[in-house]
Design a protein around this nucleic acid. Sequence first.
RNA 1: GGUCCGUUCGUCUAGGGGUUAGGACACGUCCCUUUCACGGAUGAAACACGGGUUCGAUUCCCGUACGGACUACCA
Length: 502
Amino acid sequence: MSQKVRVRFAPSPTGPLHIGGVRTALYNYLFARKTGGTFILRIEDTDQARFVPGAEQYILDSLAWLGISPDEGVGADGPHSPYRQSERKALYKQYADQLLREGKAYIAFDSFEELEAMRTLYESKGSAFQYNALTRVKLRNSLALSKAEVDALLASETPYVIRLKVPAKGEIRFQDSVRDWVHVHTSSMDDKVLMKSDGMPTYHLANVVDDHIMEITHVIRGEEWLPSAPLHILLYQSFGWQAPQFAHLPLLLKPEGNGKLSKRDADLGGFPVFPMEWTDPQSSVISKGFKQEGYLPAATLNFLAFLGWNPGTEQELFSLDELVDAFSLERINKAGAKFDVNKAKWFNQQYLKQSDSKELAQVYLPNLPAKDADAFVQLFLDRVTFPQELGQLVHEFSQKPHAYDEVVLATKWNLEAQKGLQVLAASLPTCSTWDADGIKHTIHVALEEAGIKMGKVMQMLRVALSGNGAGPDLMISMQLWGKDEVNERINAALSVFPKLVS
RNA sequence: GGUCCGUUCGUCUAGGGGUUAGGACACGUCCCUUUCACGGAUGAAACACGGGUUCGAUUCCCGUACGGACUACCA
């Protein structure tokens, strides 16, 4: 297989893109970049009933936000246009007809109701109904019915589907990049519908036809597709095409308990499972998005990349380029990975700290003079997980305290502290150089002259100024508040504290 | 139920016939710091179970258990 690598991400526009889908897209992207191949986006909208307006644009926007946009496909165009399956409708019928002609598929007239009845019947007998070599002879299809009957049904425009005639005996095997050899007996597969009665192909047919036509070399998709992979192999064989290399990715599991990660888990856990915020067009319900929650694209990507893949080194922080460089299909794990918000937050923090403070200032503190904003960002950057916390922190910082830490007050407020604050109230206004060093010097000198230890006063000073017992560097904070504001706050505290404590 | 897939610290994982089973998140302790955060150090913490194969198995094989996915004219 020395041909050029072509991979595709093929979501269906049935709602917001799930974060597991984003990871699938990422792995496809990484593999394409790594191998110098092409990353294609194909929209699989063959289910007319589940179509959700806006979902396709959402997919495009999400990939763009993360910087993993397709090279070819919807939103990028390319030699195999169109890339929306609904617009390729006519194509699939030809291939289904080909199978029909060659006796590898057949027409089935069974209605939903009839099939449902079969299922309940089998269920009552404790087994599961399968449309296969054993049962098809007794059902309403072109294999069981006479030619005249079939023609009559066709003439009366009875709805029908086209089903694949799965051989009664045989074994399908393929070598998955993640799981190695997988084999399955055709007897356990059923005659899957290829063409639906509405004239649309099912996923199975459309995906195989398109992957072949679009010269896809590697199909990298979620593990939920593993059970139908043998069917797809069988289709490739039926057409006489070479099947692409498959790689079935481990599932993303819910953080608590077991099972596939769902939107419900996200709501419960208070974290997003969608890359961007999504408003359901029907219910207007809003779902959280990584973007809006304050996750940086690079952090999101890094976090996602490590859910099911690992470079084998001890490096944890990887830029997109580094991920591309380190990525390989062989290092993808087999077992499902639980989604851990803590880890996601940690990644975000790491990337946030590496961010340019001026840029953050511009985006998150747009109303402040650039110089101040930058100083604030530097003061608070170590203490936030998400950038939007910066705005909140700065807002609180610039407000006069409306409450004072009671615990600190109760334990640290005494005559010595009071005297210390009085000393500072008197000496700080004389500070000639109002910057962190100058302030520190002034405080040192004043307290030393008064014979008071720093430790006895400093936390009270912090409470007096901010109301809080803990916070960022006090000297820099004071510099940012400015001399007048600091004095006001100290004097206010001096008049309030005695009352609060008594 | 059937088919398929999986199982190393709580979580993400490295490793792979002989290791003190390594790292990261979270957690504990200590250091740094006037405080908190950051950072640094350190601790507790894992090979699901049972059989083989082997001088030796967490690693290979087979079972069992547990978990998951799929089982639609959905993808």
